[in-house]
Design a protein around this nucleic acid. Structure first.
Lengths: 110, 110
DNA sequence: TATATTTGTTCATTATATTGGGCGTGAGCG
DNA sequence: CGCTCACGCCCAATATAATGAACAAATATA
């Protein structure tokens, strides 16, 4: 069965931007594509895809590259990252563990 | 050649957090895993991997899911997203187009 | 300007993510 | 309390991403 996916405009734009952010970050640090790829443990070809904003690459590889060139996804520093983790866990325990379709009401408190 | 990758702690944490954010967002919207997966054009199995914070899934799929449950990676709204695009393009044209290893100097102005 | 190097691209092969189905469990609703 | 449905997990088959090599073209330095 073919996969045949389609991506929303927002997704495509976000991917393109992330790629550019990485590219800029790499340039600012004076890193060669090969160097950065090596450090991230991926091939230069894959890094190229990432910088082009392709939807295919593994998210783990992309995040790894991001951390290497100083692109932070959620603009949290590491400490607050921990905090948010705790918060989210809290939230998750409070939330219902399975979603019933009959439940129509949802309020966006965040 | 085996791939054999390793991910930094930051990457792993970011992935875990993103997964939790998605999970919370989905719950808040009262969406079934199957429903969300359908809308994102992926299988429930893959969505499960994403929510678990696995490094493997395609970044396109993850971003698609994010946009569906209201998790924004860069806290830019769509409009400023355009702006940032322009800025990045500008920056890219100014930056050298290939990186020379002999260039030792790098200044982090961002 | 000459030259070494970085980058962009393609391609066959290999590794791996995705899929869809099924099963058991537990949570939420009547 | 009982029943239904959402979820977590496993698996085989298949689609696809990752790799590494190779080549051309562009680009930065001497």
């Amino acid at each position: 069965m073919p996969r045949q996916r389609s991506y929303s405009r927002v997704t495509r734009e976000a991917l393109a931007m992330l790629g550019k952010l990485i590219r800029v970050g790499r340039a600012q640090r004076g890193l060669t594509a090969q160097e950065l790829a090596d450090r991230a443990g991926i091939s230069r070809t894959t890094l190229s895809s990432i910088e082009k904003g392709a939807p295919g690459p593994e998210i783990g590889a992309v995040f790894e590259v991001c951390s290497l060139v100083g692109v932070r996804l959620f603009d949290y520093d590491e400490r607050s990252l921990q905090m948010h983790h705790a918060r989210l866990d809290e939230k998750l325990t409070l939330l219902p563990k399975s979603v019933r379709r009959t439940v129509k009401e949802v309020d966006d408190d965040f």
